[in-house]
Design a protein around this nucleic acid. Structure first.
Lengths: 404, 404
DNA sequence: CGCATTAGTTGTACGGCTGAACTATTGCGT
DNA sequence: ACGCAATAGTTCAGCCGTACAACTAATGCG
């Protein structure tokens, strides 16, 4: 089930989330949020009385706030379960299905996609259009994605749902403050303002890096609240999540682990430097190292590994060592005790894990007293879309007053 | 002058700074903070009316809040300046001097120190005791520092000041949540709970890494609100500041740039790995590389550099390149556009700068459209103590209701 | 010397939360 | 079947903090 936490937002945590003067109605906004969060974060349905004890608000206050949330269709009253103790039976509360929804959008090298999620965490609708966008034109690709999104929006609204906003995931450096895509090497895009090209009118659309939204999708499971997410697709992407909050650095251009130095006397990288991680543990390097075609499917590599092909095993082990070295640097610099490996690394984890772990144990300064966990990602192939939609819903939850 | 900003705290920004129910009096607490902040952050004194317009609160409300802050001696009314326009002259407000003070403490390899700062940013008192604590016993050193602190506290209280709390800076891995020192290699300490050993009774004492508190001291000047602070003392320490907030990772063990890989075929490091930054740009490596004694004063190296000694210049340039490479990794991973170099690097900056800049320009992915700035630190030699004291005062400002 | 102007204070109105008393609905013992 | 205890949810007077408007205070200027 979808679990909402304290505040996963693309806005940096320093956002003056209350630099404004507090008036009387700020109290209600604040407590509305508190009540909504209590219900959304609870693993099982709460009653009004439960919410009162868990929040510390008076029962009377909770009642009026819940009534508002129910009227605004953010919460629903579930049918009462058979009471097992004396007293008036409680009315269980839960997030409302198919009322307010978030839209997750993605452009990747080999597909366009859009996904609609409701407050229960259900994927209401999802469409993926395969394609080859390696050296594409944003002015044709983004309007296509926009049209796809429009379809989904129309369908959702026809069924009475309200679309709260959208998040667009792109495989490149996105300025989190301006929403500008600086560069996406694999798409061949640079300096693009993507939102207007989507043509979604007044709908609020935020843009973010693909790996960062995919990382947020991991928060649905029971991962550690702080982790490093690293995923290999065409490039290598990463995200830092601390206490369920995405860390974005100054502009959101962090996590570029693909170009961390592994060995300065190593092969030249497309970025101009030598011995970058991508040259050892990027998808292309892996395929080449295993003696396969660079555009062969990942399954080909897996088959070779399962057949104990020496070249494949050697390439993956070398990648594991390089990845472990770069991850050790990453952990030493940002301090996160859990690493979640996504994309191709999820599949390859059985062959990577030992080398990665060994290097982490050897090179992370805090490893002797706090070993670094290495896990496989749990969210599926279109994690960025799901994570993006989820982010939109988090914003709704953060200011429910706008929706009641 | 001391400038206070939105929220530099050692607590991670995710602290549920309002997970509690909002009651009536929360409004007043919130607005008290807002008013206090407005006065503290303004470059020049504000009147009650100025505060009303800048906060958006009604003049009546501001008046009562200011009165409280003045009564609690957090603010003072300055003598009115000659009015240059019609109307009743404004009463200028400013942070109160010598009322509430913060205590900064530090144990370093060659000194112990304590510093008292008041709300105006003035250092009221400061004492530094030289010593050699290379392989010392925390159970003797910390009580000594505690006694020094007691002296300063007694003096301050004798003059009617209230000591709000203390921050202890240590050169090692400190768990920000528990205040436990995991390891401080240069002191030879490990697994120490330092606070009880200080013997400061009920005074709230937080513990933090030395470089992190030193970084916060830079916020007094007009640095960028986001920067990477890297300083060479006996070890190499670093801190990440984003939007005037310290980034601490999961536990506060981040910033260990000294053990980032520069070249895996390089010299073996004390940590067991090969080619760590410390082996190129640590103080010991610099001295050795320049053909000087490892415990020679920094001035000796500077003299050699000024005399264009080939060995010294070569060692520093090699250090610059290594530092540039490690910093490029750092910037790629956390995304901060400004680097502030402290400790020995401040002095050596003229000889380091070109190589550092060249490597940053070459290896930072975002450098082509957002060049990385490299600056010298401005805070003096005992920056960590000042930064620590300042942090205590930030906490006071964050909840002024506790002090009125 | 009076008027315009700006700063700060006083008093009433209003909104939101609280606590206590109330109603509603169940289980359980007799 | 009935009443009592127990729990959920609602109603209402009281309190508290802010807003707004009218007030007083203190200055410059013609």
């Amino acid at each position: 089930m979808l679990r909402y936490s304290q505040g996963v937002t693309l806005d940096p945590p320093t956002t003056p989330r209350g630099a404004a003067a507090a008036r009387q109605h700020s109290l209600r906004e604040r407590n509305l949020e508190l009540v909504a969060r209590a219900v959304f974060e609870s693993p099982e349905p709460l009653s009004r009385a439960d919410v009162a004890t868990s929040t510390g608000l008076a029962r009377a206050t909770v009642s009026t706030l819940v009534d508002r949330l129910v009227a605004g269709r953010l919460l629903t009253e579930l049918p009462p379960v058979a009471a097992q103790r004396a007293g008036r039976p409680a009315v269980p509360l839960a997030p409302a299905a198919r009322s307010v929804v978030g839209l997750g959008l993605e452009v990747n090298v080999d597909y366009l996609g859009a996904s609609v999620m409701d407050l229960t965490g259900d994927t209401v609708d999802e469409r993926v259009v395969p394609g080859a966008f390696h050296d594409s034109d944003p002015a044709t690709v983004l309007p296509r994605l926009g049209a796809l999104a429009q379809d989904l929006i129309a369908d959702a609204e026809a069924e009475g749902m309200r679309v709260a906003g959208a998040r667009l995931a792109l495989p490149g450096l996105v300025d989190a403050r301006t929403g500008l895509l600086q560069v996406a090497p694999n798409l061949g895009w640079s300096s693009v303002a993507p939102v207007p090209l989507l043509g979604l009118g007044d709908l609020p659309v935020d843009v973010a890096n693909e790996a960062k939204l995919a990382a947020l999708a991991e928060l649905t499971g029971d991962v550690s609240p702080s982790f490093l997410y690293v995923s290999a697709d065409v490039g290598i992407g990463a995200a830092v999540v601390v206490d369920r909050h995405l860390f974005l650095g100054e502009r959101g251009w962090n996590g570029e682990i693909g170009h961390v130095v592994v060995d300065p006397s190593g092969p030249r990288c497309s970025c101009g430097a030598f011995g970058c991680l991508e040259q050892y543990a990027g998808k292309e390097a892996l395929m080449k190292g295993a003696g396969l075609a660079v555009d062969a499917p990942l399954e080909a590599l897996v088959h070779a590994l399962q057949a104990h092909d020496d070249g494949a095993v050697g390439a993956v082990r070398q990648a594991g060592a390089a990845l472990g070295s770069a991850l050790a640097d990453f952990v030493n610099l940002v301090d996160v005790g859990t690493i979640v490996l996504g994309g191709a690394y999820t599949t390859l984890l059985p062959w990577l894990r030992d080398d990665v772990r060994a290097l982490l144990a050897e090179r992370v300064l805090s490893a002797p007293f706090a070993p670094v966990e290495v896990q496989a990602a749990e969210a599926g192939p279109y994690a960025a879309m799901a994570g993006g939609a989820r982010e939109v819903l988090r914003d709704v939850l953060a200011s429910p007053a706008d929706w009641v």
